[in-house]
């Protein structure tokens, strides 16, 4: 186990170095390769984790996911890049929500879980699920399946903020009574819904900024999943993306002379005609 942790530390080095190199045009491609090496190291060493006993699901999952990812990455037109990133990001957020959920459901008796791992389970499901639906709405807006215009009505922002507070309160209840199935399903359902209702009022032209923000969320969701299963590599890599993604979102807003709050709540900006 200590060996695995040391190798996780090496993977972390590749992620940090990779993100740094991605900042400059001359080194960006190398940076991406560095990050990919870090990911490969992280995955490979995890397969030696003693907790992993059965491999059928793992092999099948990697083959299916790898094939879908590779085909999408190769075939999609270069002009459609932002929406493709949105799709990938949606899957990543969804995966983090599933990791938190899967770990929770693995424990036959959830009352044996500590309060802090229940809180992070709830937060992981919340942020992961809203990233999942939000990213696909962003994809739909850029693709034109969903009107690129700001779809909104008076009070939608209030409803969204209210729902977010409601989910946080429910996560509190969930911590006290993790056996209550109803609370669990309401948290999941409401989180999926918030992803939809918080992206739908934003205009298509602002979608790249929204995708960048959702990318930051998916990092935080991965970090929360890391807290749930007690894995440092997830916590670190997730936090790196969460923070770096937030800074990048701010830079993108500045480039448009807008504030982040204005993008999220402004219900502004019409059809972009696909990024």
């Amino acid at each position: 186990p200590d060996t695995i942790q040391i190798i996780y530390l090496i993977a972390t080095f590749f992620f940090i170095r990779g993100l740094k190199l991605l900042n400059s045009p001359a080194t960006a491609r190398k940076g991406n390769q560095f990050a990919a090496i870090g990911m490969f190291i992280g995955i490979a060493v995890t397969l030696f984790d003693q907790q992993i006993i059965s491999f059928e699901w793992i092999i099948a999952g990697i083959l299916i996911g790898g094939l879908i990812g590779a085909v999408l990455a190769k075939k999609v037109a270069m002009t459609a890049m932002p929406e493709l990133v949105a799709v990938f990001n949606g899957f990543g957020g969804g995966a983090s929500a599933l990791v938190a959920w899967g770990e929770f459901s693995r424990l036959v008796d959830p009352t044996t879980m500590t309060p802090d791992s229940l809180v992070t389970t709830g937060l992981g499901i919340f942020i992961g699920a809203l990233t999942f639906t939000g990213s696909f709405i962003a994809f739909g807006k850029l693709k034109g399946f969903i009107s690129g215009n700001a779809i909104t009505f008076p009070g939608l922002n209030v409803i969204n903020i209210g729902s977010m507070i409601a989910v946080l309160v429910l996560i509190g209840f969930f911590t006290f009574d993790p056996t209550n199935q109803t609370i669990f399903w309401i948290i999941l359902g409401l989180s999926l819904l918030i992803g939809i209702t918080s992206v739908i009022p934003i205009g298509g032209a602002d979608m790249p900024v929204v995708i960048s923000l959702l990318n930051s969320y998916s990092g935080i969701a991965a970090s929360m999943a890391g807290f749930v299963i007690g894995n440092n590599l997830l916590i670190i890599a997730g936090a790196l993306v969460g923070a770096a993604g937030l800074i990048l979102t701010q830079i993108m807003c500045k480039a448009m002379n807008r504030s982040l709050a204005n993008v999220i709540f402004g219900a502004f900006g019409g059809d972009s005609g696909g990024g």
Binding site: L22, M39, I52, F88, A95, E103, S212, N231, L234, G238
Partner: peptide
């Protein structure tokens, strides 16, 4: 954004652990 997004796929490590039990 795309590169950082790929890194957030690190959650695959968690998925491996959950599925491999």
């Amino acid at each position: 954004m795309s590169g950082a997004n790929a890194i957030s796929g690190i959650t695959i490590v968690g998925a491996l652990i959950v599925a491999g039990h």
